[in-house]
Design a protein around this nucleic acid. Structure first.
Lengths: 210, 210, 210, 210
DNA sequence: GATGAATGAGCATTCATTCAT
DNA sequence: AATGAATGAATGCTCATTCAT
């Protein structure tokens, strides 16, 4: 994929170095916390001078935010992989949710990063990580509407279903993390999904859902 | 019950001052974050000297932890109120969950505090706030078992039901917070509870659950 | 010696408490250093409140100085004991010097106190401890003059002999302490005194001392 | 010897700056005491930022210790100068002792530093300043042994002679300082040396020394 | 007189950021 | 572009002293 030999070679080298810095940053910020991580350490781990880090990201805060965005992109990529390989929307839904749980099982540092983000930028809300991707939300809205019309899921307000799903999956992840339970969460989620799809109650009310 | 006019008067005054300090600490830590809050500010808000805060809590970290514990006790108290006033366990369950959501709606600072706690004491896990109250967990386990035997909820493993419930309610709360959605969450939870109890799917599988 | 039963009983009690405080102060200041010793600790050791210490000595600095003076008085007392029991001035001289070395062997804390005094009150000089007792110096001057006239010691200027003796004995003590050698110094002083009295050289110059 | 124009230029500049800081530190620590000297003042006097001082010496305590070691090296250098220019060991001995006294006359701050060292690091003993230089001590031991065999000094145990000499010269210096007498001590030491070499007594005992 | 709760001045140290080389 | 030496703002904590009880 590396094309132009010269000018772009430089640019590519720069881009790669940026990525290296971000990777180091994610791990260190997640491991020791924003406050306990010195920019010097990040530079050391990458093997460059402190000044270089500053040249690439301007200041510590920007570096942190870029690291969060980088992590988010990784999650999106991980979900996109499974999503594209599924046809049935209901199966797809479950696959995506599992993919999300798996991602956090595999990258617990990202949870730490999210916590740090909220602790640090308490005013900046919503989280950079959860910033609405309207495009994606609309797509899923259509799929859910389709499922309702196909009689496969109950006829509840689509936006609320979406919120419930998010609360369900990210919420499970957060609580799992806060309560200090051991990964993997994805494998413990049988019952979670069972309840999500079929509910807790033994009998459904004969009539009127709302 | 307050008898001796003197000794107890002093002790009571001390205890009240401690509480005042904790209240100020909760609000300031939640508002500005642990790192950005100077002990001096807390003292100022209470109207005492910095030294007095240190006399009561030893150091900033202990003060913070005490504030978290204080907040947790307030949540427990809020839940206990509604719990004791209900007879039917299923209704009780829902009341408690609603009470929890309401508590966080009413005290959003406590969520901030929890985030801060995790960000600061990344090693200390589980959160002081979620430290298992085994007593309480056992009681609820029995109630759920009773509900299963009475045929009111589905026959799923009780501990997993408990985890699912926790993930559900606290998870909803966390996501709500991280995603930056506006309170009140409690009032938006109709669908949440509906899904929790009756599931998302239109049809239940004829047989074999799990 | 305790006479009047009442009013003086109170005074005596006060005086004793003062002494108790000074003893505790000497030991703690010597042991941990002025800076590391809290007035609270001294009060604790005596078993009184901090306020009481302040009532007796005004402030920490005065307390320290009083402790040094107290220690000096103990040395003077120790020397006076041996001095009065000797008739021959030359033997008396040696006895006194030995008594001084013994005192510091027995009370190494006093050396610490002297060091602290100099370190703390660098401007106040001479040391409170070595403040000239003119009375005593004159007495010894006369005795030395007598020894010269009796042909028992060499005819050197008396004040310089006095300085030399002080340098000799206190100097030995200080160096012993600074160099970290183990007590007792008094027992290692045979050679010291031998050199003091008879010199290091094998032959004395035939003539003219200078 | 300075070859490379660049790298060594930097290193040399660093070393010089270190020395500048040490010089300022010696004077300020001696003048105001360790506790009363702020690192900021030292930086100000050298004309650098506080951070630079910390970069060079890590912390205040290390800086202090480095200052003491620096002073000790200066003394050693001063003594080495006179020592090497003398042939006769007895003259050499006296020259060295005089050089020591002169050094402290010229650098009274160093005495202050020694006092501070003892007051601060009461457990660290012997003083960094007096740490035995075994090499040097052995050399002098041989010289003294030679003087005894040549019949020039009395036949006393060599190690005790060494201790006596140290006590004599450093002791004189300490007492001089503690007693608050004015420098120069070196010039007042005629009698001191006279007594050291020829003793105080008018007559030597006919027989048996020791 | 005695006490000890309350006070707040004082200071070492860290680390993000800059900029000369 | 890259570096890392220099900078200085920012802050938790201690402890002598006071004074109401």
């Amino acid at each position: 994929m590396e094309v132009q030999p010269h000018a772009d070679g430089k640019e590519a080298a720069q881009a790669e170095r940026s990525r290296d810095i971000l990777d180091a940053a994610i791990n260190l910020f997640a491991d020791k916390g924003y406050g306990q991580t010195e920019v010097q350490e990040i530079a050391d781990r990458v093997g460059v001078g402190k000044g270089t880090v500053y040249r690439h990201f301007g200041n510590k805060e920007s570096l942190f935010l870029a690291a969060v965005a980088h992590a988010r992109d990784q999650l999106i990529a991980a979900v996109d992989v499974v999503q594209s390989s599924e046809a049935d929307p209901l199966v797809q839904l479950r696959s995506c949710m599992t993919a999300i749980l798996r991602f956090f099982d595999a990258h617990p540092q990202v949870v730490e990063l999210l916590i740090e983000e909220r602790a640090l930028f308490r005013d900046r809300r919503p989280s950079l990580f959860f910033e609405h991707d309207e495009q994606r939300r609309r797509e899923w809205g259509q799929r859910l509407q389709g499922l309702i019309e196909a009689g496969r899921i109950r006829n509840l307000p689509v936006p609320e279903i979406q919120d419930t799903l998010s609360r369900f999956v990210f919420g499970a992840m957060f609580f799992h993390y806060f309560a200090g339970q051991a990964p993997p969460l994805a494998d413990q989620s049988q019952v979670l999904f069972d309840v999500l799809f079929y509910g807790l109650a033994a009998e459904r009310p004969t009539r009127a859902e709302s």
